[in-house]
Design a protein around this nucleic acid. Structure first.
Lengths: 140, 140
DNA sequence: CAGCATCCACGTTGATACTG
DNA sequence: CAGTATCAACGTGGATGCTG
């Protein structure tokens, strides 16, 4: 029963204590990871780095709308988690290269499962939201 | 090449425009979905509802630490997106049952891909964070 | 080039009290 | 039972200016 997609999943289908204890949930690894990749830029950066290594300003130019601050913060977060490797070349001016670690690359697969689901069902979700909005408005 | 896990993924591996346009990214369906399931309670609720239908206070009791407000908001969000169906039984006192829609159930698979990854690598991530924390502290 | 420091706006989450 | 309303606290994200 260790599947992927067909049949029922493993961890998600695993028996949960009920009630779910607050203490344990606060440090749930699944929630922890999801909140990280659920932030605004992480996934995009991971996907870009999944294609090839990038330098800092190369990423900055490559991602319209991201601020220098958020690019730095996101990369630092990924580095702390061991998903991204940061290499400094002591040249003048300095060059810093970012690349996925093996751990980071191992996230690409699971990530794409959710990404593909999102792309596949985006219309359905959009229609559902529009329908809900109509109901809400007509009730006002 | 429409895989799941082995080989390189589909959407994630798809060519991205570079630079990634800010306008398009703002409404990227992948980011959109990830930000939703990246909130504090959504995944836990989806997983619980994946096991069986729940009534409101049953969920409230089942999830320690969630406020009534957040339970309502999260369920409303899931309902708007068409992942959860809300059925009101006009009894006295009222009973409201929540269950996953087929769309909601279809998310369980992709979700577990990430969840399993998180569980599998949680130690590695924790160690990486600890190591980073040590470096940071010793640099102060 | 590749950042860090500061300040600020906003969205999310939570506590509390009240209701059909 | 299953919510809504209000207020407060916090974290995330962004603008701007400065630096090795």
């Amino acid at each position: 029963m260790s599947d992927t997609h067909t049949g029922v999943p493993s961890v998600v289908a695993a028996p949960l204590p009920s009630p779910v204890p607050a203490d344990e949930y606060e440090q749930c690894p699944v929630t922890d990871v999801l909140r990280r990749i659920g932030d605004k830029w992480t996934v995009l950066i991971v996907v870009l780095l999944g294609r090839r290594p990038y330098r800092f300003n190369e990423l900055h130019r490559g991602i319209q709308g991201i601020s220098q601050r958020m690019l730095t913060r996101t990369l630092r977060g990924l580095e702390e988690d061991g998903l991204v490797h940061r290499e400094v070349f002591p040249t003048v001016p300095p060059a810093v290269e970012y690349r996925l670690t093996p751990l980071g690359e191992s996230l690409l697969g699971p990530l794409s499962a959710v990404a593909d689901w999102a792309v596949l069902h985006q219309d359905e979700i959009t229609r559902s939201r529009l329908a809900a909005a109509v109901v809400t408005t007509s009730r006002s």
